[in-house]
Amino acid sequence: MTLKTIIVDDEHLARSLIKDYVSKVPQLELINEFKNAIDAMTFLQSHPVDLIFLDIQMPNLTGIEFVETIQLNNTMVIFTTAYSEYAIKGYELNAFDYLLKPITFPRFLQSVNKAIKQFELINQSSSNREEEEIEKTSRVDQVITKKDSISIKADYKLHLIKYNHLRYLEGQKEYVSFHTTTKNILALASLKKMEAELPTDQFIRIHKSFIVNKSEIESLEGNMLGLGDVELPVGQSYRSQLLKLFE
């Protein structure tokens, strides 16, 4: 993972110094450098950038005017300047950091390490949201409950199982194993969602990891429910509801 980086500074020596510092940090990828803010603004319109090292005192358009003019979204800005009086204005513009020239490498590295951590947090949050959306979509596509059967997409096949052939369901983290009278099918699904969608007159939740077909139940001994050749644990919070089937 690297941060796409640009340098904007009208001084050649200042750009060269930061360019040298950037080359020493593997997580930074310098994709361009500019001697004025106007050219940088044009570049940003068509190129995503994660981090900008931006000088404040520049002709035509200052670094502060640049930030006030363009929408940067999640792009982080580290101001670089020889004038400490601009620091307050820089922070008012939500600049990520402020480096006072002459910039030393330890101070540069301190700022960059904070930026890398921030970048990781932003991308982790975005990735989690994407995974959640993908998982939600996948679960809808993988398992569809019908009036008297359930349709499951697994192993590159579509399986149609009658409810009276479905013995029990077993939750396995992000997956559910559907145990039928003839085979087991593992599919991306939520046991909680299955509990809500399966007909309650035919199925009952007995444990945080198990839903069973009522017609398969044969015995209850202690906290173990017998389904013929299979014994399943009964969760304490589900026991009272299960006992009603034996009354």
Rank of each mutant, 00 (worst) to 15 (best):
F34N: 03
F34H: 09
E133Y: 09
I122N: 12
T137Q: 07
D39H: 04
A87K: 08
F119C: 04
P106V: 01
S84M: 09
E65N: 13
A95R: 06
I122D: 11
I56E: 01
N32C: 00
D50Y: 10
Q71L: 09
I78L: 03
L100D: 14
Q71I: 15
Q142N: 15
K136F: 13
F79G: 10
I70V: 10
F105S: 12
Q110V: 04
G63E: 10
V49Y: 01
D55R: 02
F53D: 01
T75I: 05
A115I: 11
S84V: 15
Y91D: 12
V49S: 03
F66Q: 02
A40N: 03
I122T: 10
T42V: 12
N128W: 06
I122H: 01
L121A: 11
S84N: 15
S46Q: 07
D50V: 08
T104N: 01
L93T: 14
N123Y: 07
N74K: 03
L61W: 02
V77F: 07
R129Q: 14
F108S: 06
E33K: 01
M41Y: 02
K146W: 02
K114D: 06
A82D: 12
Q124G: 05
Y91T: 13
I116F: 00
K114I: 07
T42S: 10
T145S: 02
D97T: 08
A95W: 02
T80I: 15
F105M: 12
L72K: 08
N123K: 08
T69D: 01
K147E: 15
A37M: 09
M58N: 09
R129K: 13
E68H: 06
P102Q: 07
D97W: 03
I52N: 03
M76T: 14
Q142I: 14
P106F: 08
E92L: 00
T81Y: 03
Q57W: 04
R107G: 09
K101Q: 09
Y83N: 05
I122C: 10
F108D: 11
A87T: 13
M58Q: 05
L44N: 04
P48S: 01
L51V: 02
F79A: 10
N123I: 11
L44C: 08
R129T: 15
A115Q: 08
N36S: 00
K89W: 06
D97E: 04
T104L: 07
N74Y: 04
S125Y: 00
N32W: 00
K117F: 11
H47S: 15
T145I: 13
F53E: 02
E130G: 12
K101T: 11
D55V: 13
E120N: 00
I88Y: 03
A37F: 06
I38T: 13
E85A: 07
I38R: 03
D50F: 04
F66L: 05
F105I: 11
Q124M: 09
F119E: 07
S111T: 13
R139A: 08
K117C: 05
I116G: 01
L61K: 12
L72A: 09
K147T: 15
